[in-house]
């Protein structure tokens, strides 16, 4: 089915408006785009770890989710959903239920890269049929902008502040999409809310996969990244164009670049848009910026190689 807006607008949405997420929040955009890729006429259970999305969409006695929902704790969204899926498989096999269900987790980078890492790895290894979506905003936003394993080197957060002895976060981020791919699950993808067609296509593939699927979606947070709320999509787009957040998929072990970058932007324009990097443009931090550009270039080359693309001459 072609991914056309005129078709998508007719689809019933699972996340209703009126939730309490900030205006300009990337997370709700990610959720809506992913769910637009879900198959029609199928029941769904949505799971969240503790986080912005959860506290903003399920304020008792209300819910924004037009379907069954479960949250239990912060680090266990994947294992909680493992249990839901296991019960479904068991009861379905025993003939106790006859409806068809699909299972989706939306977790932030805290609940995915860091505290929820073990539960996610276990769930992927065991092969539970679920779509696990990381809405990645590169820090713990729900508790007020603290560094995570997804935070870029040099970034300011409240637990990696810059100061006389610090240029912000010292360490670089880990490559969670690569780590998910190393579990040899049927479908892994990296996506961005700025590229909605690409994300919806990936979501479709994730739902079609015969086993676990993992999508890492860049979902900017203006509160944490320090840019005006109306720039969320623009910021996400620049992350893709500067190769800070390349878009690709790993389908049954085959790597494929899904969005080619014709004119690779330098990271500077992207970083200048955001207050979290402002300190890096003050004298004395030139080396950090240069290091960061080198790191992005190196990672981009590696990705091109994995995807069988021509290596660029830098």
């Amino acid at each position: 089915m072609p991914t056309k807006l005129r078709n998508l607008v007719q689809k019933e949405e699972m996340l209703s408006g009126g939730h309490r997420l900030c205006a300009g929040c990337g997370a709700s955009v990610a959720v809506r785009q992913v769910l637009l890729g879900a198959p029609d006429n199928i029941q769904m259970v949505i799971g969240n770890p503790t986080g912005c999305l959860e506290v903003s969409t399920t304020i008792y006695p209300y819910t924004s989710w037009n379907t069954s929902f479960i949250h239990s704790a912060f680090e266990n969204a994947a294992s909680t959903m493992s249990g839901v899926e296991a019960a479904y498989q068991s009861m379905k096999a025993q003939g106790k239920i006859d409806e068809d269900y699909r299972f989706v987790v939306f977790a932030g980078d805290g609940g995915t890269y860091d505290i929820g890492f073990q539960a996610l790895s276990g769930a992927l290894e065991r092969g539970h049929k679920m779509v696990y979506v990381c809405y990645n905003n590169e820090a713990y936003m729900n508790t007020g902008i603290q560094r995570s394993g997804a935070t870029l080197r040099g970034s300011w957060t409240t637990t990696s502040p810059h100061g006389k002895e610090s240029f912000g976060k010292k360490e670089n981020r880990k490559d969670m999409t690569l780590i998910a791919a190393a579990h040899n699950i049927p479908y892994v993808a990296q996506a961005s809310i700025s590229h909605w067609k690409d994300l919806i296509r990936k979501s479709r593939k994730a739902f079609e996969a015969d086993g676990p699927a993992f999508i890492n979606v860049l979902s900017p947070c203006h509160r944490g990244w320090r840019y005006p709320p109306e720039k969320t999509v623009e910021v996400a787009k620049l992350a893709v164009q500067s190769c800070i957040w390349p878009l690709y998929e790993v389908e049954n072990g085959k790597w494929k670049l899904t969005t080619k970058v014709r004119y690779k932007e330098s990271i500077e324009e992207y970083m200048r848009m955001q207050g979290r990097f402002a300190h890096l443009f003050k004298p004395g931090n030139e080396e950090v910026l240069a290091d960061l550009q080198q790191y992005i270039d190196r990672e981009w080359q590696k990705l091109l190689e994995r995807c069988g693309e021509e290596i660029e001459d830098l």
Binding site: V45, S72, N76, S79, T80, S82, V84, A86, A87
Partner: peptide, 10 residues
């Protein structure tokens, strides 16, 4: 965690 999910699933 899985026990919680499975029990919530009925």
């Amino acid at each position: 965690s899985a026990a919680i999910g499975a029990a919530a699933a009925g």
